[in-house]
Design a protein around this nucleic acid. Structure first.
Lengths: 121, 121
DNA sequence: AATACATATGAACAGTTATTCATATGTTCA
DNA sequence: TGAACATATGAATAACTGTTCATATGTATT
């Protein structure tokens, strides 16, 4: 069933039909790959990386983090929301103060793998 | 030496001075965290995730990838450049055709950690 | 040499995102 | 109740990013 239809968006001929079809069969669901990209997008910002790294050490309140990173409370709060939506951090409230902590066991391992890549290259 | 200077950008008082200072001492170098974020930024795009996943299966030429993902050759080529700059893929030339393959052992492990996070939540 | 084709690349555009600013919410304490 | 403070949030803005389009480069074939 290998017809010679013009390929939709690619402006070149298929070079290796078999390989393409084989890989197509092995690819995870579109949605899974999308979710994976969304997760890594969260890791792809220095501020959030710093927050995660700090929270991997110890639970901290919003203001602590702002002071630590020398940024505004607002900026940190916005980023904590992103991290929370990604379910990477959780929080607990104690009076006026909200304490954030890591909510994932894989963060450190993902960091470590990333660092290994960087250090090898 | 805990003076009571107004904190630069944070518009609130330091809540837990000791924690902030302790964590500050344990944080990796600014540059390391920046590089880590830059690396994850590369993972933070569906197209690039798909390319990496495909190349983890088998070496492919640019056109193959374009057909596989139903995208233009140009778009793929641009993304391959990003992946190459990040040293996640390498290529070899055979006549007109350029074959790309993974250039990192950690890609799959990073994916797996990410997937574990997603599946747990 | 000329053509065909695979890939690369620069400019432009649209969509996304991080920070700032102003302000709202919610809690404590007097 | 009102003042003080920690945090959250919406709107605005500036910077960044992915794709497209047009075109350039480089290789093989005739």
């Amino acid at each position: 069933m290998n017809n010679n239809n013009p390929i939709e968006k690619c402006d070149c001929e298929v070079i290796h039909d078999e390989i393409v079809n084989s890989v197509k069969g092995k690819m995870p669901q579109e949605e899974t790959l999308f979710d994976l990209a969304e997760l890594f997008k969260v890791f792809g910002d220095s501020t959030r990386i710093k927050i995660l790294w700090a929270l991997d050490e110890v639970e901290m309140c919003v203001c602590d983090i702002a002071v630590l990173l020398n940024m505004t409370q607002s900026a940190i709060s916005h980023q904590l929301r992103v991290l929370k939506q990604a379910k990477l951090v959780k929080n607990r409230k104690e009076g006026k103060v909200v304490y954030y902590s890591l909510d994932d066991d894989h963060v450190k391992q993902i960091f470590d793998q990333g660092l290994e890549h960087i250090n090898e290259k």
